[in-house]
Amino acid sequence: MSDDNRRSGAHPTAQPVIQPAAPRFVQLLPSWGVGGVTILVLFVATALLSWELVGKDRPEAYTSVSGNILLVHLPAVLTYALGTWAAGAVHRAPSRDASLRHCVALFVPALVVQALGFLLPAANLTVLGVLIALADLVIGCALGFLLDRLRRR
């Protein structure tokens, strides 16, 4: 018996245990969970923060174009970007090496959160509102994807 086997406690004829690879769908679940939770927590945090800092004293700030961009859309873009980036940070190889699967891991949480936002009964959907929300989503996901690519270098 060699010294390595004696120290590790392994039997000299023991075969190495090979762990089976998780199914591809299961490999996506951690990134979806982290991305979705990140987006939801950041949406709640930015909504509460913007209301406490600005909206409580001056609710008319939300009605102006610049106030709406600064208090609603910019935080939404940053939230989608950070959620997409967090989903990419958790996504691991070998599924990460496939471009399509990596894009699915990155973008699905943001798409699901946006779809849930459209389905809420309080959502007052207009064509312009949907287009602006989709623009927030696309810009945020693109920024998150770029952050993920920069992190991987």
Rank of each mutant, 00 (worst) to 15 (best):
residue 108 V to H: 05
residue 138 V to K: 04
residue 135 A to H: 07
residue 118 F to N: 04
residue 127 V to L: 15
residue 94 P to W: 06
residue 96 R to P: 00
residue 136 D to W: 03
residue 124 N to M: 11
residue 98 A to M: 06
residue 79 T to D: 05
residue 117 G to N: 03
residue 39 I to P: 04
residue 94 P to T: 03
residue 103 C to N: 13
residue 115 A to G: 11
residue 92 R to W: 02
residue 131 L to H: 07
residue 111 L to C: 14
residue 116 L to R: 06
residue 138 V to G: 10
residue 102 H to C: 11
residue 42 L to K: 12
residue 51 W to A: 15
residue 129 G to V: 08
residue 43 F to S: 13
residue 42 L to F: 14
residue 67 G to T: 04
residue 115 A to Y: 05
residue 140 G to V: 01
residue 99 S to H: 14
residue 135 A to L: 14
residue 49 L to M: 10
residue 99 S to D: 09
residue 90 V to K: 11
residue 88 G to R: 00
residue 36 G to K: 01
residue 111 L to P: 04
residue 78 L to E: 05
residue 39 I to T: 05
residue 105 A to L: 04
residue 44 V to I: 12
residue 104 V to K: 02
residue 92 R to M: 07
residue 103 C to G: 14
residue 77 V to Y: 13
residue 74 L to M: 12
residue 124 N to K: 14
residue 68 N to Y: 10
residue 112 V to Q: 02
residue 76 A to N: 09
residue 76 A to V: 03
residue 36 G to W: 10
residue 62 Y to S: 09
residue 69 I to G: 08
residue 120 L to A: 15
residue 38 T to G: 01
residue 96 R to C: 00
residue 139 I to D: 07
residue 116 L to N: 05
residue 50 S to L: 08
residue 99 S to E: 13
residue 66 S to I: 09
residue 66 S to L: 10
